[in-house]
Design a protein around this nucleic acid. Sequence first.
DNA 1: CGGTCCGTTGAGGCCTATCAATCGCGGTGG
DNA 2: CCACCGCGATTGATAGGCCTCAACGGACCG
Lengths: 226, 226
Amino acid sequence: MIDVETVRKLPRFSGLTPEAHKWLSERLARKFFEKGKLLFLEGEDSSYLYLVERGAVKVFRSLESGRELILGLFRYGDAIGEVALIDGNGYPASASAHEDSTVLLMRREDYLYYLKAFDGAAIALLRDLMMRMRTMQRRMEDLGGGGVEYRLGRVLQTFCAASKGDGPLYIPVPLTRQDFADMVGARVETVIRIMSRWQKEGLIGHDEGRLWVRDRATLEALVHSE
Amino acid sequence: MIDVETVRKLPRFSGLTPEAHKWLSERLARKFFEKGKLLFLEGEDSSYLYLVERGAVKVFRSLESGRELILGLFRYGDAIGEVALIDGNGYPASASAHEDSTVLLMRREDYLYYLKAFDGAAIALLRDLMMRMRTMQRRMEDLGGGGVEYRLGRVLQTFCAASKGDGPLYIPVPLTRQDFADMVGARVETVIRIMSRWQKEGLIGHDEGRLWVRDRATLEALVHSE
DNA sequence: CGGTCCGTTGAGGCCTATCAATCGCGGTGG
DNA sequence: CCACCGCGATTGATAGGCCTCAACGGACCG
């Protein structure tokens, strides 16, 4: 049981009535996950909907090749586990805390009831799913379409999409080279070589661990270079 | 306006009431597309839901690199254009008739009304979307996970998934080497070299243009070989 | 100080793209 | 009927990208 105010602020629930907020607040629980801890494993029966409140949650799959492909990084307001909750076939991927994170949990039964009972809930879900499908499609195009350099550029674009202004664009999540490699489907060494070159050329850099891209024009250049 | 019987048989509508079937039959139109003709272009405003009745429809995106990535081949009973219809942002990809095909069309307004008015309609949509998200995720893993050989094997698996029995597994759609290349994100020549080798090894072959894989065990072997 | 994690660099080799040329086939027009 | 053309399949040669293996340095921590 958590604060109504917290619920009301979540973009996912913002359009609902005060009654709905109250109902939700009584059925959401807060849980803390230390960096690296698993939220769930692929194949597990899906029992909960997760809403990221603080930190970042990594959703990934371990491939037969031994690689790990990062399917998405979810941050404040993002929902995880919906697909599995609705079709009831178990989680299609694993999730772990990419940083120390707190999430809000809702039990499966409650969520299903919520979808039916409250106007706008199902619509919100549909909209979310559509957006995600577009995102996934773009990822597929990237993975199938070009070299590692191109794919890396696209990933940076994705993370910079939200930032504004003219100066350097900061990536809002701490990412290791390995993380990048897992996102573009490449090896660490390859990623390092490319990013080192970009760094030498002044296109990217980092302050106190936070990565940045020089400016918006640079960001465009990264993907058009090949 | 089409036959009620036709509507009733579509898996997508099978669970609905006779009233719903009648309502739908009055709002669906049939249209023929010659092989190669465009159903719609990416970016176009979405006005219709498409249901494949006969033939096969190819959904694809033209990438900046000049390549074309096939996002999916849709056959009897499959719906196309739902994402765009619901979020209203235009089609995220193009579609063309991969063979001579007939499709059933429903106007956007009608479809949206249908979703709200008939019990089970929204649920059917959700289920369909979930399944597609799982499919897309698998595709992403494939594209990001291994070499062309692995990806080709996975594509064959996908097409053979529906066939049963012990003998050779026939691929139910006529596909050129270029089509395969466009599905796995590779060049024609690469696909040809791999498939020629498989053919020499007796793993695959073709009768009167129809491609087959030797048996189920072979199918497994194709992807585990590397 | 040893251990772990991350970043980095180098050498070598496989895989895939690229470019170019050829072949078979069906259709078409003369 | 035959020459020609367009399309898909095929093959070879070559270059370059990316992986693989291996080793090393630095930061942080117990």
